[in-house]
Amino acid sequence: MKEKMKTVLLKWFFSYLLILGIPIILSIGIYTYSLKTTINQSNKMNDVLMSSVKSEIDNHINEIDKMLNRVALDADVQYATIIKNCFTSKDQIRLYHLVDTLQNLNMTDEFIEDIFIYFNNTGTVSSIKGNMSGELYYHLYYENSEYDFVKFEELMKQDYFKEIVLIHKLNGETILLFTMKTLITVSGQDSGMIVIAVNQRNLQKIVENMKWDESLRIFVMNGSNEVINTDQYKELADDLDYKNLQDDDHFYKDIMGERYVVSVEGSDMIDWKYVCMTPNDLIQKSAKSIHNFSLIGLFICILVGAYFSYFLAKSNYNPLKGIVDLFRGQASRSVNQEKNEYQWLKEEAENIFKERMDTNRILRKNRKILKGYYIFRLLEYPFDKQNAM
């Protein structure tokens, strides 16, 4: 049975395979860097997006704020505010001018859906749609489940200064009412409410037009933790707390079984937060191609590297194996299985050199013995020239 030794071939093979760690580590590094870069770019894009949303909506709110002040300072509004019980025929020209003023103001901003003034002393409304009783106006345009007409009247009597009221009309539309009490008149009376109405869909339209991907979840949250631009993301917003949302912040949040990157931008005009939720899968998707390329590259590197590692190890090992076989054919000692080819060859070479030195030493010794023997013979038996003996 042929004896086996601990071969150096496996060490060579694994040392070549170890070199594969370089492209593996490089691929992991490239993927990690690409993912980090993608996340940073996504955050920057979201920052730009949220800044645009903030700028657009805040500009509209600023215009509404100016418009509320403009209406409050209007002479016809201040005149109509102090009228008691009902308007007379002599007041109609002022009311006509007031409606005309409101219509002109409304034409300056398509974001605004309606402008009206509720006069508490007369129970009437002047709006871009004309003059009518408050009850008729309510049932025609603002009937909702939260406020019946009695509560609506009470709402119009509140001492609001640029407050925002959210109502849900019976037709399914959500309206934001920007309210402000009329200015106190010379007579000391203050009995009117200026209201500028904005449809929720106008807010949502601004948001939708600025999305760079349809999977983004963008909404506007007020101080009461309400989503005011859409009813679609209310469940997502339930997991967010307005108080914990910091301006210019980015953080990860697991909501409804999905991971999101949440970006926050605060309004400069009112207590609104603009929130963008980016699905983490969308960010991962951007780096997916690099990830797949890295995996394919790793797979090819492993296959090709393993083949060449074996080929190079075998090619380098064959000459060594030939020398080992030559020595083993001449060796008389048994093979030590704990030693590899190099160690075994070293030991055999040392033994050969030792045997050679021993042989030379014995030959020198034998040469001296032979020399002494022949001298002894010559001295004991002299040479006879006559007999050649």
Rank of each mutant, 00 (worst) to 15 (best):
E3T: 15
M5T: 06
T7S: 13
V8G: 08
L10C: 00
F13P: 06
F13N: 09
F13S: 03
F14K: 07
Y16E: 09
L20G: 03
L20V: 02
I24R: 01
G29D: 06
Y31P: 01
S34G: 06
T37A: 04
M45L: 13
M50E: 14
V53H: 02
D58R: 09
H60N: 09
I61D: 01
A72Y: 02
A72H: 05
Y79K: 13
I82F: 08
T88V: 08
Y96S: 10
D100H: 14
Q103P: 00
N106W: 00
F111S: 03
I112K: 02
E113R: 07
E113W: 06
Y118F: 15
Y118E: 07
G123W: 08
V125W: 05
S133V: 05
S133R: 07
E135L: 02
V150Q: 10
K151F: 06
E153V: 00
E154A: 14
K157M: 08
D159R: 08
K169L: 12
E173I: 03
T174F: 09
L176A: 08
S191A: 14
A197D: 05
L203R: 13
K205S: 13
K211N: 12
W212Q: 03
S215D: 15
L216D: 01
R217Q: 00
E226S: 13
T230D: 01
L236F: 05
A237K: 05
F251M: 04
Y252H: 06
D254K: 12
V262R: 01
E265W: 00
G266Q: 04
D268S: 10
D268H: 10
Y274N: 08
T278A: 10
L282V: 11
I283R: 11
Q284W: 09
K285C: 03
S286I: 11
K288H: 12
F293L: 14
I300P: 09
I302F: 12
I302C: 05
V304N: 07
A306S: 15
P319I: 04
V324L: 12
D325P: 04
L326V: 01
Q330T: 04
A331D: 11
E348Q: 13
A349P: 00
E350P: 03
K371T: 08
F376A: 11
R377D: 01
R377G: 04
P382D: 10
Q386I: 15
M389A: 10
